[in-house]
């Protein structure tokens, strides 16, 4: 393509110029996410569901329980950071930090889950508590919905590059946040329930849902396959 057509393109872009409202800052967006998550927690409390740290039966003493709490927290913060920072050009350093946090969180979750399940007597009679774990999964998903929607609104308006990964990370981060709250408030302390209902199911469902809805976040389909 001759160079003069680039000059012509620049002229066209200038003629096409309309005022735009700059995207909200990451700090403000993070505050909005924290705010809607707090509101979701408050609503959950008003519905009579247990809140983090307020349930007497929570087995805080277990090291595996605390490690999973740390892992889910890291994954939530890291996943949401990757999604939001990756949607703004030039925020690579922050995205990199978020990615490290998220992978570290995921690593802690997987290692702790494996270690806990493989420890002698951890799985008891070998029954899988599916109904109870689905209950925790539903609570985690309910708590994750408001921050996930807020992140989705931000992503839909942000830079369209790597939107699939952004959607997946946002979903995983938001669900990890919900799972973190559920984990901190659920009174069941057996390994099978905790690993299945607080870690495996929420994260697998989040990754799947994120991959499915991410293409819908695309605001401008013209860009695809331009070269």
């Amino acid at each position: 393509m001759p160079e003069r057509s680039t000059e012509a393109l620049l002229q066209e872009l200038c003629q096409d110029l309309t005022p735009v409202r700059p995207l909200g800052s990451l700090r403000v967006t993070a505050c909005v996410l924290a705010g809607v998550f707090a509101l979701a927690l408050a609503a959950s409390g008003m519905l009579g569901l247990p809140l983090p740290g307020l349930t007497s039966g929570v087995p805080w003493r277990s090291a595996a329980f605390l490690a999973l709490l740390l892992g889910l927290g890291l994954l939530a913060a890291g996943g949401l950071t990757v999604a939001l920072a990756g949607a703004i050009p030039g925020r690579d350093a922050l995205e990199c930090v978020g990615r490290r946090m998220a992978w570290a969180g995921l690593g802690v979750c997987i290692a702790t889950s494996l270690g806990w399940c493989l420890s002698p007597g951890a799985l008891g009679g070998g029954e899988v508590p599916l109904a109870a774990s689905l209950n925790c999964l539903a609570r985690a998903a309910g708590l994750a919905l408001p921050p996930a929607l807020a992140a989705g609104v931000f992503l839909a308006r942000a830079y369209e590059c790597r939107r699939l990964m952004g959607g997946v990370w946002a979903c995983v981060g938001a669900v990890a946040l919900g799972a973190w709250a559920v984990h901190a408030s659920c009174s069941a302390g057996d390994a099978a329930h905790v690993v299945l209902g607080h870690v495996l199911e929420p994260l697998a469902v989040a990754a799947l849902v994120g991959a499915l809805i991410a293409p819908w976040l695309r605001r401008d389909p013209v860009r695809e396959g331009a070269v």
Binding site: V20, L23, I88, E160, D220, R223, A226
Partner: peptide
């Protein structure tokens, strides 16, 4: 340049 134009609101 097309990307710069479309993503100018992200700056």
């Amino acid at each position: 340049f097309l990307s710069v134009h479309r993503a100018r609101h992200t700056y």
